[in-house]
Amino acid sequence: MVRYIIKRFLISILTVWVVITATFFLMNLMPGKPYTGEKAIPKAIQENLNAKYGLDQPLITRYFIYLKNVSRGDLGMSMTYKNREVSEIIRDNFPVSADLGIRSLIFGVIAGLFLGVISALKHNRGWDSFSMLVAIIGVSLPSFIIGTMLQFGLGLKFSAFIKDLFNTDFQLFPIALWESPWHKILPSFALGLASLALVARLMRTSMLDVLNQDYIRTAKSKGLSYRTVVMRHTIRNAILPVVTILGPLSAAVLTGTFVVENIFAIPGLGKHFVQSVGMYDYTMIMGLTLFYASFLIAVNFLVDILYGIIDPRIRLAKGKI
């Protein structure tokens, strides 16, 4: 197990390096340069700026300087926000994105597992159809449509209705912003629904598969209660595929925050990511890409270890590598 972890760790570091290198050179292939916005900037000033950010150096030199800085934890200054470090922007805005992402993920995974299990156990009955309807909606409607529909239905209409009824200004589902816990409900739901759908479908299939396995018949033949057969023997085995997709799923949710942040006017990191590309903010592009990549790689790393803990077969097989 220890060797497995060390190996996975080294691979993760290598992956981060590949991401840095690829992003760095691809970014420099983009047509256009920093400070070539709509307003023409005098040549002298531009050269000054280039010198300040080291853009006058050859590409290869810049690459190695960047690597050196990154290895010391220095992501550089933003090129659009004067005097703000990229790491500072991340520090200020990421917690909001993470908050939204984690809420959605927890909501999506837990509700998805629940629906998946129920739907497999009530196979081909009302509950099953209901869960799969939810799952299909979740898979086919993108978060911006769901977000907008929620804003309209719950944020606007429902609030107006409540206001009429109780004559209060309290909003159970505020339309936008990120202030009270109430503000977090709609965006988390909008973002989490897709994960919910995915997890529910996967869990349902996996449960149905496990329920047909010989060892479930063995468990029944031992006289265990229905509850024990389901909880101890079925779910534990059925959950394995769901654990495997937790990595990619967190990636999807995390990148999905951009859209939802936009709709609900949430001050997260997504806005900066999108803007940085339009502004040719090289350091910001690099910094955010690197940050997200490392984050996702770390999540996958943890998921792999978690998987090893749940599934003894993996633990052994990989320990032998």
């Binding site: 010989d214 018949r217 063995t218 599934d311």
Partner: peptide, 8 residues
């Protein structure tokens, strides 16, 4: 081969 629970 398939009659025992693999995770217990």
């Amino acid at each position: 081969m398939t009659s025992l629970n693999p995770t217990m």
